[in-house]
């Protein structure tokens, strides 16, 4: 059986395909957010920035990417 070449994530509630073996920085690059000031959760749990380069992604991961906006 052929190994699957991509996996499907849910990023901010929307499906997102990334190549198998992708790490978080790869995903951010795909999303055009490589240099953006963002914070991340995977499956409801904060992933600190220092751990992004070693965090592997799995099919079905629910990822939240947040930033700051105007508010009171």
């Amino acid at each position: 059986m052929m190994q699957r070449m991509s996996l499907t994530l849910a990023v901010n509630g929307k499906p997102q395909e990334v190549p198998t073996g992708s790490l978080l920085p790869d995903l951010l690059k795909t999303l055009g957010l490589a240099d953006a000031q963002v914070a991340l959760e995977i499956n409801g749990k904060l992933v600190p920035k220092r751990k992004w380069p070693v965090r592997e992604l799995s099919s079905g991961d629910r990822i939240e990417v947040v930033t700051l906006v105007g508010g009171g």
Partner: peptide, 18 residues
Amino acid sequence: TVAVRRVNLDQRAGTSLL
């Protein structure tokens, strides 16, 4: 004060608040 919200993945252009 500022708020925390999902990044809008459909409309990423433009500057951020900070």
